[in-house]
């Protein structure tokens, strides 16, 4: 995380925190298993998008999923819920 507020003068009078992508950093580092999408199977149902706890799946123009690996924590809900098994989980390399 970027170091902020080196000086007291930059701080607000009380803890007022700004909406920021990655408040906990790039949470993709937490991941053990990586979801991979087989777009030939995907039916564009968007279930994976709505069920992602991390908002790490975006919808492409055709409503197929775009996984943001910077933030995906690898929980596997998307793969578990995909009705056509278009998403599969693969162990991250060391």
């Amino acid at each position: 995380m970027v170091a902020v507020h080196k000086s007291r003068k930059d701080m607000p009078l009380t803890p007022l925190s700004s909406p920021t992508l990655g408040s906990m950093g790039k949470t993709g580092y937490w991941r053990t298993f990586r979801p991979e999408v087989d777009y030939s199977k995907c039916t564009r149902c968007t279930l994976c998008w709505i069920y992602c706890p991390d908002a790490a799946i975006e919808r492409r123009e055709d409503d197929s999923p775009k996984i943001d690996y910077d933030y995906c924590k690898g929980c596997g809900i998307c793969a578990n819920e995909c009705p056509v098994k278009a998403i599969t989980m693969h162990r991250e390399e060391e």
Binding site: P19, T20, L21, G22, S23, M24, G25, K26, T27, W30, R31, P53, D54, A55, A56, D68, D70, Y71, K73, G74, C75, G76, I77
Partner: peptide, 9 residues
């Protein structure tokens, strides 16, 4: 927003 501090899943 993405990159929040919740547990996976």
């Amino acid at each position: 927003l993405k990159g929040h501090a919740a547990c996976a899943g």
